[in-house]
Design a protein around this nucleic acid. Sequence first.
DNA 1: TCTGGGGTCCTAGGACCC
DNA 2: TCTGGGGTCCTAGGACCC
Length: 436
Amino acid sequence: MEQPLTLHSWPKAIVHIDADAFFAACEQAIHPELRGKPVVTGKERGIVAAASYEAKAKGITRGIRLFEVKKICPEAIILPSDYETYSLFSIRMFAILRRFSPDVEEYSIDEAFVDLTGLRRLYQGSYGKIAQQIQETIEKELGITVSIGVSVTKVLAKVASQTRKPRGLTVIPGTDIHLFLKDLPIEEVWGIGPNTAALLQKFGIRTALDFARSSEAFVKKYFSKPYQEVWHELNGRSVYPVVPETKNDYQSISKTKTFTPPTDQKDFLFAQMARNLENACTKARRYELVARRLFLYMRRQDFNDFGVEIRLTRPTAYPMELLEALREGFQQIYRPGTLYRATGVVLSGLIPVSSLQFGLFDDRVQIERIVQVYRVIDGLAEKFGKHTVHHGASHSVELHAQHEGERGDIPTRKRELFKGENKRQRLGLPVLSVPV
DNA sequence: TCTGGGGTCCTAGGACCC
DNA sequence: TCTGGGGTCCTAGGACCC
């Protein structure tokens, strides 16, 4: 059965907000001495995660390696990414947006959609004017700049925000859509990746306008649902709603860690794996989820992954109960003499703990004991930082980290900026309660 | 785009049931 | 025993996103 598409009869006003060089901008906002200077983040992984506009002006782009950065721009300031701080900026940005409209979708750490439909009268100005107020408020209060796109659909609002950066403000009225799509390469449209672009090329479609102007029959014949939706959106018919719910559910939770140099040291690799498992489980418990499957893998030097999936006899989010399975899985995939560059863990088949029932043969006393232990561990982590208590299995990771001096020069000024806020409150997370 | 870390949704096909 | 029709659940793999 064909699902009818929800088409809205009058045009919506959707805004896309995209922070400019977000990570680098946060660093410059916190450290005034970095303003006006080429700043790059991504030290911990050896490639550029974000580059300030001063760095971009010198030719530094996302993804290039740090030794190249040093060649191109020796004066560049290279910092490790500090996600915790960036999250705080992110939360504040979303809070500002909610002052303008309740319909805010937190799309990623540095992007959001806001539905302003119907708010013109309230603000006594055009949607463009409201967007401008949003832009100014963020800059004034957070010290970072954003680029904004305004249009009648999410896809078009995204197109608009990409048009001018940094500090851009672009409005695409329904009547001018073609002007903006005519020179836009199809692969730059949100939702069209390299594979689909290549297929479209075969039909002679190169620009977003070529695609938008294709017939519905053609689009339905050759493309699946997501692409049909993009096609409608490019034509100004809104099918993607702005979804205001904040994330409180996951299909899967994964944790991976890459290390240099690659190694075949068994103990070290297993410790990394165990640490990933702890991290993934901690996150699962925070969202009160338990996993039915555990997938673990190791990435070889050639970037091929080898892993196994383990079906758990009882859903859980407690490493203690998973360590045995982890060890077995690890034995299956580990090959001595092979160099690995990363290990990873995925918890999937996630269901709410509340839906759990005790099996006939489960040892309830034992289970409750485990729950108690982790309640204490989570409490300590809350107060004193993560991994205050960790498994013996992952302890050698700790030693390794000290050795490497990881995260040695994390900025400390954020404490001043955000003092008085407990981390969980700052991140807007529910306080953990483990049902027994 | 030479490769970090974390996600989502869609489709097809098989297993199984009535 | 054969046959038809229809439904649900699950999984693997692909494609895409930041």
